[in-house]
Write a protein that binds this DNA or RNA. Structure first.
Lengths: 156, 156
DNA sequence: ATTGAAAGAGTCTCAGT
DNA sequence: ACTGAGACTCTTTCAAT
């Protein structure tokens, strides 16, 4: 997990390509980027050893799996010092997929994914409200996701 | 992309495991779930054909790559009918990674990832403000991400 | 650091159950 | 629908540059 590591254009190109599609073979990706498959392999190994590349994940269409309801929730904390304790409780709720400590109106900002509105209601009303340190919450429900993608990294 | 497809416990288990780590071999995953590697292969093929599994992605530590600044932005639209046009413009901005049409105060809610505060300022001030249809925006900056994970799917 | 080839490991297909 | 084995492809290692 060292961090002082010089990345060149090829490294950035490999990351950019494989963030979108990690199924491409090293030989094919090498052809596209004008190096050998062996070089792709060495670079990816370097990126994995340095911790920049953390692994490969299956990309799943949650909507097709029945997880239709995405909501963003702003949380007002009683005291901002309670952030860590509240985050720990939130992690126990399976539907909570992301927790951020934030500036602005809310002390924290979270994202939850549910199978339906009933489950959302349950999480909001029964799960969140009983966590000590949460004052009140504001819910933003996503009616439609236009797009979701990785940041487009600069390749130089 | 057919959608009426019965998934059993094994399918859900495979998805759950490989959402976290897609590098495991079919033989090893089969051992863990008490079936053969061939069966894992058939199930994954079925999930890919149905569109539930969309591919494999490289998981990258954006912070280690220098993308330190994550912000959520609530956008007030002049008219909600302008949503599609605004979304299209937002897609042209590389730092915008997610766009949602939402209920609540904001007509839309987006996420952006930047290399530093200067870049955030540029996106907020120069890029967003010149999009027709955006009335005003409210920015929530993430000071720290407690965690980010996939939804924990029910395996039955 | 990159290459190309050989060794090793994994995926994919298929006949049998 | 699952299994195990064979064919095939990819990753990984390594000697040479």
């Amino acid at each position: 997990m060292q961090n002082k590591l010089h990345l060149d254009k090829l490294d950035y190109q490999i990351i950019q390509e494989m963030m979108v599609n990690a199924e491409v073979s090293y030989a094919d990706l090498g052809k596209k980027l004008f190096v050998s498959g062996g070089t792709i392999h060495v670079r990816i190994k370097k990126l994995e050893d340095s911790g920049i590349v953390q692994g490969r994940r299956l990309a799943v269409d949650l909507k097709a799996l029945g997880y239709d309801v995405v909501a963003f929730i702003g949380i007002y904390l009683e005291k901002s010092s309670m952030y860590d304790a509240v985050a720990k409780e939130l992690k126990k709720i399976p539907q909570v997929v992301r927790v951020n400590y934030t500036t602005g109106n809310y002390g924290m900002f979270i994202e939850i994914v549910c199978k339906d509105i009933q489950q959302l209601r349950y999480v909001l009303h029964d799960e969140l409200q009983k966590i000590k340190g949460i004052d009140r919450t504001e819910t933003i429900i996503s009616l439609e996701e236009s797009f979701s993608r990785n940041v487009i990294i600069a390749t130089d």
